[in-house]
């Protein structure tokens, strides 16, 4: 994430988050990705009539990084959250752990706190994934 982009987004009316919130998101994404070796990415926007399919398409759009990626897709308009794991990350992050993180995140979203829910959810997911050296591929 380029810092200049954040300022532009927060200055424009289209940006959903303030600069402070963007900083929290950036820190959570970067720290959890560096701790685990898994690339976490966050999509915030519409997911359409078939949210799961769209989120999986987005995950496929990550290209070569997709097997080592976890996509968290949030659609605040449709009140829908999707967590998608890839080929390698699914082994380190079982569906049950994803469901637990999803439950925690939706509880925060229901209170109107998108950023807080995402930050806590990412922390839960990263804790579950663990360090890259400790878990065998």
């Amino acid at each position: 994430m380029v810092p200049g982009e954040d300022e532009d987004r927060s200055a424009g009316p289209a940006g959903p988050f303030s600069l402070k919130q963007l900083t929290r998101l950036d820190e959570a994404l970067t720290l959890s990705s560096r701790e685990t070796g898994v690339q976490f990415s966050l999509y915030v926007g519409a997911l359409g009539p078939d949210p799961r399919r769209n989120a999986e398409d987005l995950h496929a759009g990550l290209g070569g990084a997709a097997p080592d990626s976890v996509l968290v897709a949030v659609s605040p308009g449709e009140r829908r959250l999707e967590i998608v794991t890839g080929e390698h990350t699914a082994k380190r992050l079982p569906d049950r752990s994803c469901a637990l993180a999803a439950l925690s995140m939706t509880a925060s979203f229901n209170g109107g706190d998108i950023v807080g829910g995402v930050v806590n959810g990412l922390r839960m997911l990263a804790d579950q994934v663990g360090k890259p050296s400790l878990t065998p591929r």
Partner: peptide, 25 residues
């Protein structure tokens, strides 16, 4: 990400998803 965007518009992107979870609120 850019190449992903172009592949999204293609006929059928390769499936990379293996698991995950969904939630509503």
């Amino acid at each position: 990400l850019e190449s992903g965007g172009s592949s999204r518009s293609g006929p059928g992107p390769r499936r990379t998803a293996r698991g995950g979870a969904s939630g509503t609120w």
